[in-house]
Amino acid sequence: MSTTPEQLYNFGFIDEDSKREVRRQILKAIALPGHQVPFASRDLPIARGWGTGGLQITMAIIDADDTLKVIDQGDDESVNAVNLRRLLQRTTGVTTTVDTTAASIIQTRHRIPEEPMRRDQILVLQVPMVDPLRWVEPNLERATIMHGESDYGRMWVYMYESVVKAGDLRIATQYPVIVAGRYMMDTTPIPRWDVMRLHNAEALFLFGAGREKRIYAVPPYTTIEPLQFEDFRFKTEFVAGQICARCGAQDTFLTSHFVVDSDHADGGHWRSSCSDTSFCDKRVLVNATTQEAPQ
């Protein structure tokens, strides 16, 4: 993205009418928790599927006073996060941060930060697949009618047969929930670990899907109920005894990387650490400081 001084972008990149449209749809999404609101997704200088839905939300809401954090898979330094942050920073001039507690807007794919979010913070999630009913109704228009009529019986049956009986875990990583007792919502692409962190939270959650052109929201203090059965209760990925190899945290969402080690019989080993890298870095720093301090 190179420009001459004569080719200035609009503040926040997209034009004012595009912002206004996104803003109107966000307000409706908040008034209809969990309901997917269509919007006229614009073309952006990044490919759809790389966060254009979340990006347009951030561009429509961001103000010059905001402090922005962008993460992908919990990581501030991933290529995608760096590209999105650079685009937003260059077209708004806002301060950016990796510190969750310092951010007013956090744009993310795949994760809700480990540190609890406050009422003065907005989490913008990039969504690849919007509709939980796609498992039983691939046609989006028919699925929209089913949502309107709370016609969720087939989804409950599907959930029971595939997850409980067949042990199909694909859907278990895109866990459907009921929002505020009414709309069924997909929590893609966050892990089950993060699902209940949407429940009665202090922060506002906005979801944007660029390819499927939908915006939806979970307001603060809104109930989130995962689909579950008497004999198959909702469970997170937590494993007893799990621990982060870097910071020692025992209650975070972990990711595994293969570490090459020629001394090792298999040529290396798997190592698990916090997926929220900024949170992990903070803990590593605190651990180092407390170890140095005389007790």
């Binding site: 420009t3 080719q7 200035l8 972008y9 609009n10 503040f11 926040g12 990149f13 004012e16 010059a64 650079r86 920073q89 260059r90 077209t91 708004t92 001039g93």
Partner: peptide, 13 residues
């Protein structure tokens, strides 16, 4: 880092 945006108008602000 260079910024390449037009300052918003009073109305846009």
């Amino acid at each position: 880092m260079t910024t390449t945006f037009q300052p918003p108008s009073l109305f846009e602000t």
